[in-house]
Amino acid sequence: MQQTRLNTDRIRAARRLINPVFRDTPLYRCEALEPDLGCAVSIKLETANPVRSFKARGTEVVASLLADRGSQAVVCASSGNLGQALAWSGRDRGLDVTVVSSRFATASKLDRIRALDARLELVDGDHELARDRAVAIARSDGIRLVEDSLDIETCEGAATIGLELVDTAPSFDTVLIALGGGALATGVGHVLKALAPEVELICVQPLGAPAMTRSWRSGRVVTTDSTDTIADGVDGRRPIPAVLDDLLLVADDAILVQESSIITGMRLLFAQAGLIAEPSAALGIAALLENRDRFAGRHVVTVVCGGNVDADAYRRWVGADPVHGS
């Protein structure tokens, strides 16, 4: 395999820095989903933790290294999940955490960031404008900027999911990964290519937020002027060149799915698996719904990467109450 920025030995070392509450997440075959999807389906569940997403695997590594170096403050831009994770990891290690987000981000995610004692600054724009503001704060205050996917620690933290998949002696053929900034895809992809190269890695994005997929297909960075998707965790417009370079080395395909399929995927995960999944976490199921012939007869793992939802929006999409049940 050509070299990505990631290193397998560092990934193994990163695993030791991550609080056990975020490691060894459930991986199980979900037979109830299979009649609707036409293939064998296993779920890697990354929502059963204090921040309800995979992001803390990366922030645990970042915060641990910063604390060891005597750092006291850190800032990031986030649509919600990274901010929660950094707030949790930073609070645990005495770091002063600032999170910059769009004021249009999911309200429950913003509330959780505040509840974790982080300073929250809101901008009148999307995630890319929040990223610009976080860069400005880091420069003016002289503090560490955590950039999801660009910072190698976020990728190598996420890559520990790949170690757990490989350690199960995989019988699966394909792993479906939600594609946003790229930390999850490049991290898991690096491990699969290094340790289980026979397993196919397929990235999934919404049609309404296609920048990284278009970039992967063209082999160069392609930006978009706007996004239009309910999957706020993957709605970036400006791919990071170094992350794209890694993705080109580890992804076997990148596909786009419709909003209606994302919603159906959320409904299936709730009805058949008893899981509350945010839109980004249902992208793998959406890909299976739209590509039944492609995956027929295969054993597919999908990473359910986040479960932070706005209750009112979830009721509209799924027809169920995420607070009180169906």
Rank of each mutant, 00 (worst) to 15 (best):
L179N: 04
A67C: 07
L122A: 06
G265P: 08
I143M: 15
V301S: 14
L268I: 07
Q3W: 00
Y28S: 08
S218G: 05
V309W: 14
A242W: 01
V309Y: 14
L163S: 10
A183K: 03
S280K: 07
G90V: 10
I276Q: 11
T223F: 09
N19Y: 00
S53V: 01
G58S: 03
T229M: 12
S64E: 12
F104M: 11
G306I: 06
D141P: 02
I143F: 15
V301P: 10
V204K: 03
S79K: 09
G325R: 04
L269W: 12
G125N: 11
I262V: 13
A40S: 11
N81K: 03
G38P: 01
P26E: 02
T98P: 12
W317G: 11
T227W: 02
P35S: 10
G125D: 13
P35G: 07
S78G: 07
F172N: 06
R23E: 15
L65I: 08
G94A: 05
G219A: 03
W216T: 00
V135S: 13
T98Y: 12
V304G: 15
I137D: 10
S280Q: 10
T59Y: 12
A159I: 07
Q258H: 15
D321M: 08
E60R: 07
A13L: 08
I230D: 15
E121T: 04
G284W: 15
A85G: 09
A136H: 05
W88Y: 15
V204I: 05
R52K: 05
I113D: 14
T227K: 06
T160G: 11
A313L: 12
A159H: 11
E198N: 05
E46A: 02
L201Y: 01
H127N: 09
G307M: 07
R16Q: 14
T174L: 05
L288H: 07
V123D: 13
R315K: 15
G157T: 13
V61Q: 09
Q3F: 00
E31D: 13
A159W: 14
G208H: 04
F295V: 02
G182V: 00
L289M: 09
Q3M: 00
A159T: 07
I137L: 10
E259W: 04
S149P: 09
